[in-house]
């Protein structure tokens, strides 16, 4: 808050007070208040009870925003309203308000801690990959939560890949990345791209835009709802709890883990057929069947016509 603002707001400080207000303002931001929330709170603390209209006028903040600010400060517990027409607002004394803000921040950290427990428990559901206590450089693990974190990892993997990117999973697994840059990351990789996935009749829109040469059809009997992306046979991003709404994945460069999944991928890739091959074969078969039925129909009608024309000729003769 500048000296000029302080003057406008109805309480006059000299230059040294203005400096203190600026300091308090900055500190309050660290306690989770926005600049305007801090402004409103400080004004109420110094100027006393005010209506929303008065605050809006004094602080030159639009009235609608002033109501939002008052509402949020009330929810934080550092101001209160006095019922009346119009309602008036006042602040909790600053020492009490600071305690409330500290408690709020503590609760936020507690919330983060509880989420940490979820990640750890997820981790515990995964098998142990090595018994050595010392973590080797190639045995790193990262548990990723949230679509953005996972996308950042996919971007890193696809951009730095020099040899291959292997993707395996059903469309349902990857549908969560629809409308993101996921496909672009895959398309733009400079390494060899191989994808094994389901291919619905309506078209594989999840991997839309990727050359069909790079995609093979995952067997419809493939029931395991797992998916992973392997980079250069050295890193893997393995998706966990795919059916949950929460995005979770685990990245690792653990050799044993990566080589197991790479072998699995290669085996499935070998067994699977290219989308193009299968579609084309199916199409030929369908066209052949269709044409055969047409010919049979023509023959039936032709036989009838022959018989009838001959019969009529005989009648005439």
């Amino acid at each position: 808050m500048t000296m000029e603002e302080a003057l406008v707001e109805g309480y006059v400080f000299d230059a040294k007070h203005s400096e203190s207000i600026d300091k308090i303002n900055k500190i309050l931001l660290q306690y989770g208040l926005t600049p305007n929330q801090s402004k409103v709170y400080l004004h109420l603390t110094k100027a006393g009870e005010k209506t929303a209209s008065e605050l809006s006028k004094n602080l030159k903040i639009p009235r609608t925003e002033t109501y939002h600010l008052l509402n949020s400060l009330e929810q934080k517990g550092i101001i209160y309203s006095i019922f009346g027409k119009p309602s008036r607002f006042n602040s909790i004394p600053i020492n009490e308000a600071m305690n409330i803000l500290i408690d709020n921040e503590k609760k936020r950290v507690e919330d983060l801690e509880s989420k940490k427990k979820t990640i750890v428990s997820l981790w515990e559901t995964l098998p142990e990959f090595h018994s050595e206590k010392t973590v080797l450089p190639e045995n790193r693990f990262q548990s990723l939560q949230g679509r953005n974190s996972i996308l950042v990892k996919i971007e890193q993997m696809t951009k730095t890949a020099t040899k291959s990117i292997h993707v395996l999973g059903t469309e349902a697994n990857f549908i969560k990345f629809y409308h993101t840059d996921f496909v672009d990351y895959l398309k733009n990789t400079k390494s060899e791209l191989e994808i094994v996935t389901t291919f619905s009749e309506k078209g594989n829109y999840v991997f839309e835009g990727i050359d069909l040469e790079n995609i093979k059809k995952l067997d419809d009997n493939h029931q395991d709802n797992f998916s992973f992306i392997i980079k250069d046979e050295s890193e893997v991003l393995f998706f966990v709890n795919n059916l949950d709404t929460e995005f979770s994945a685990m990245w690792t460069d653990s050799k044993s883990f990566v080589s197991t999944l790479e072998s699995l991928f290669k085996m499935i890739w070998r067994k699977s057929k290219h989308i193009l091959e299968k579609e084309s074969a199916e199409l030929d078969e369908k066209q052949y069947e269709h044409r055969l039925r047409e010919i049979e129909q023509e023959k039936i009608i032709l036989d009838y016509l022959h018989k009838n024309v001959l019969a009529k000729k005989r009648e005439r003769n």
């Binding site: 023509e298 009608i301 032709l302 009838y304 016509l305 009838n308």
Partner: peptide, 15 residues
């Protein structure tokens, strides 16, 4: 779109 069939069915129906 099968001209053969349409011609034949048409003849058949006219008969």
């Amino acid at each position: 779109d099968n001209e053969q069939i349409t011609k034949m069915v048409s003849t058949f129906l006219s008969l």
